[in-house]
């Protein structure tokens, strides 16, 4: 139970995001086996029904696949994983833009701000 959950979003979606992020960051590699439902339930402090739902959702998103009798694995299709990475990027951009718009910034100001940020940080991108 190392992690806590946000109160305003379904727990299974938070776990879907968590595992997707781990895959995008390369902490879980193509072909890696995910923990069993029970083990992941214990690890994340939720019940097995929730983990089952998480794995089902990830399977539906084609991020993982279940091999009968063997368990659940990160898919090995690199194209699909690139897609996941791209989707996550887009999702966070959308969130950023929405928040900034609510504060009254225009898209142009945001782009300028990001370019400025890049200059300030020396464009390093590791």
């Amino acid at each position: 139970m190392a992690h806590s959950f946000l109160p305003d979003k379904p727990i299974y979606l938070q776990l879907v995001d968590r595992i997707s992020s781990e895959i995008v960051r390369g902490e879980r590699l193509p072909g890696d086996k995910l923990p069993s439902v029970r083990d992941y339930a214990i690890e994340s402090g939720v019940n097995a029904n929730t983990v089952q739902r998480v794995y089902r959702e990830l399977e539906f998103l084609r991020v993982v696949e279940t091999r009968r009798g063997q368990g659940t694995f990160v898919i090995e299709n690199q194209e699909k994983l690139n897609q996941l990475r791209e989707d996550m990027k887009q999702k966070y951009i959308d969130l950023f833009v929405t928040d900034m718009r609510e504060l009254g910034f225009t898209l142009e100001e945001m782009v300028k701000g990001i370019l400025h940020y890049q200059e300030r940080e020396g464009g390093s991108d590791d």
């Binding site: 959950f5 109160p7 305003d8 979003k9 727990i11 402090g45 939720v46 029904n49 929730t50």
Partner: peptide, 30 residues
Amino acid sequence: PILDEVILLGSGEVVAQRSVEAIRDKYQMS
């Protein structure tokens, strides 16, 4: 985090029975 559903009682009556994920999803509330 380990509950599927809650049954809310008030003064001996069932006020509501809901899935926890539905509460988070629908009302954005714990």
